[in-house]
Write a protein that binds this DNA or RNA. Structure first.
Length: 255
DNA sequence: ATGACCTGACCATCAGGA
């Protein structure tokens, strides 16, 4: 089962690259973040072109997430969809015949740190923690997306720049490691040579610098970790015409 | 030290991103 997660920074702006990745990689499950579009029917129709069915959570201008999958996969949508009632930042699908819960997330940014944006970020992460605590009792858990957390100093090219940034605050890291302590494995971290930055700022990367951060993750329950066949940050999509500032990440599971 | 660049909303310029 090949799965791709990607913060596309606008569905409409990224349609050519989304089409390319679907045709090139043929993912069984394709999870997007930051759709930046309200029209849910438009999102569903877009993926229908490629014979993918879609579950989307949308809102005007900001946020928005979708899980698309091949038609033969039977989805059971989790009734607990939004962690936050006003922001479309997560959706969960259950694949019952594989005993699998897939959580697709776009964590809040949380800047600036002296505002309620930061406390709301931490609150959102706590709600996610509670949701996973429930789901892990019944299902294998695959948590993925844009976490907006730099878990370790080595996950940034220059951690000093993030001293006052919500992404690298001790409180943000604490909530991240609480998720890890639910028996979820940061599979890029634990697989030799697979770690790579996943985000490259538009303002710096155009000069060809390697100034990135690692903020997009697959967190897997131990059983799923034992089934990993392939794992990759698809960095080439950051170098194509009109890219997202995030790279797609890919995992192939033998399930 | 600062700003850079991109997107959507909407029409000139700003919020938000990270």
């Amino acid at each position: 089962m090949k799965i791709i997660s990607w913060n596309v920074n606008s569905l409409r702006a990224r349609e050519p690259l989304i089409e390319k990745i679907i045709k090139t990689e043929a993912p069984d499950i394709f999870c997007l973040q930051e759709l930046k579009i309200l029209d849910k029917e438009y999102v569903e129709n877009f993926f229908n072109q490629f014979s993918l069915k879609t579950v989307a959570e949308t809102q005007k201008s900001y946020n928005g997430v979708s899980v698309s999958c091949k038609s033969e996969i039977v989805l059971n949508e989790n009734p607990l969809k939004r962690l936050n009632m006003t922001q479309a930042r997560n959706n969960t699908v259950i694949i019952k015949d594989k005993n699998l819960a897939i959580l697709n997330c776009y964590f809040p940014n949380g800047n600036p740190i002296d505002t309620d944006k930061f406390t709301n970020k931490l609150e959102w992460m706590k709600l996610l923690y509670k949701e996973i605590e429930i789901l892990k009792k019944e299902y294998e858990v695959l948590l993925m997306g844009d976490f907006n957390v730099i878990p370790d100093d080595e996950d940034a090219h220059d951690i000093k720049k993030y001293k006052n940034d919500a992404l690298a605050q001790p409180e943000s890291r604490k909530e991240f490691y609480k998720l890890i302590n639910l028996d979820l494995i940061d599979v890029f971290k634990t697989t030799p040579k697979k770690q790579s930055y996943t985000f490259f700022d538009y303002k710096t990367y155009k000069f060809g610098k390697e100034e990135g951060i690692r903020i997009d993750f697959f967190l897997l329950s131990p059983f799923l970790k034992s089934k990993v066949m392939k794992l990759k940050v698809l960095k080439e999509y950051r170098d194509m015409d009109r890219p997202s500032d995030h790279c797609p990440i890919l995992i192939d599971l033998n399930i």
